[in-house]
């Protein structure tokens, strides 16, 4: 059982990463331990995928302890613009 909900996680990430777009989905059927996130932030610019994920992981380090699974997609605003029409 985790005390975190998707709004909390989205808020925290948005604040820390100045995210221009963010969605967090709770895939855990309410137990709050499984999330999927799409984060678009200018802070990801010129960062490798691993570095981006590490940024997110370090922001959620405390939360990660009780989150069982966290899937993330990290895009720069530019990448997001390119991807948008497809999806």
């Amino acid at each position: 059982m985790s005390e975190y909900n998707r709004e909390y996680i989205a808020d925290k990430l948005r604040k820390e990463l100045d995210a221009t777009y963010i969605t967090v989905d709770d895939l855990s059927d309410g137990c709050g331990a499984k999330f999927q996130a799409l984060i678009v932030s200018p802070k990801f610019e010129s960062k490798s995928l691993l570095e981006r994920h590490r940024m997110v992981n370090s922001i959620l380090a405390e939360e990660m302890k009780s989150i069982h699974a966290f899937t993330q997609k990290t895009l720069t605003p530019e990448q997001w613009k390119k991807q948008k029409p497809q999806s």
């Binding site: 995928l49 691993l50 994920h53 590490r54 992981n57 380090a61 990660m64 699974a69 966290f70 899937t71 993330q72 997609k73």
Partner: peptide, 24 residues
């Protein structure tokens, strides 16, 4: 310094978990 499993290493270097490998 990675919170989840699986973890993939190439040439002794950590390259990522499932998300990263999938996106790569």
């Amino acid at each position: 310094n990675w919170p989840t499993i699986p973890q993939v290493y190439v040439d002794g270097q950590f390259i990522g978990g499932c998300d990263i490998l999938l996106q790569m």
